[in-house]
Simulated assay, not measured.
Amino acid sequence: MRPAEEIRYLVLAAQREGNRRLAQELRPLGLTPSQAEVLRLLAERQPLALNALGGLLVCESGSNPSRLVDRLVAAGLVHRAEAAEDRRRVELTLTPKGSQAASQVVDVEDRLYDRIDAVAASHDGRAVRDFLRALVDGEPSGLALARRATS
Rank of each mutant, 00 (worst) to 15 (best):
P28W: 05
A101V: 06
T150R: 13
V11Y: 03
L145R: 11
E44W: 02
A146T: 10
R87A: 15
R67H: 06
A149P: 05
N51H: 12
E109V: 15
S34P: 03
L48F: 01
G62F: 02
Q15T: 14
D86E: 12
G138I: 06
N19M: 13
S63H: 03
D114E: 15
R87T: 12
L42D: 09
A14C: 11
L112K: 07
R126V: 14
K97V: 06
L31W: 02
V73C: 01
E82V: 04
E91Q: 11
H123L: 15
V106D: 10
L145V: 12
V108P: 03
A36S: 06
A118D: 14
L57Y: 07
R89E: 14
A134R: 13
A14S: 15
S34W: 00
H79D: 13
V105I: 09
Q46F: 04
S151R: 13
D70C: 00
A36G: 07
G125V: 10
L94H: 08
P140S: 10
A75D: 13
D137C: 08
G18S: 12
R115Q: 14
A134Y: 00
Q15F: 09
V108C: 04
V11C: 06
G30S: 03
A14Q: 09
E17C: 05
E25Q: 12
L39Y: 05
T32M: 00
V11P: 01
R87D: 11
H123R: 11
G138C: 08
Q35I: 00
V11Q: 10
C59M: 15
L94N: 07
L56T: 08
P33Q: 05
R147Y: 06
N51I: 09
D137H: 14
R8S: 11
G125L: 08
S141W: 03
L50P: 02
P47G: 06
L72Q: 01
V105H: 03
K97D: 15
R8D: 12
A23G: 11
F131D: 10
T95A: 03
V106K: 07
R115G: 10
V38C: 04
L77G: 02
V136F: 14
R20D: 15
R87S: 12
E44R: 12
S103K: 12
R126H: 05
L112T: 09
F131G: 08
L53K: 04
R133F: 05
Q104D: 11
A102W: 10
R21F: 00
A52V: 06
R8I: 08
R126Q: 13
L72G: 02
E91K: 01
K97S: 14
V119E: 13
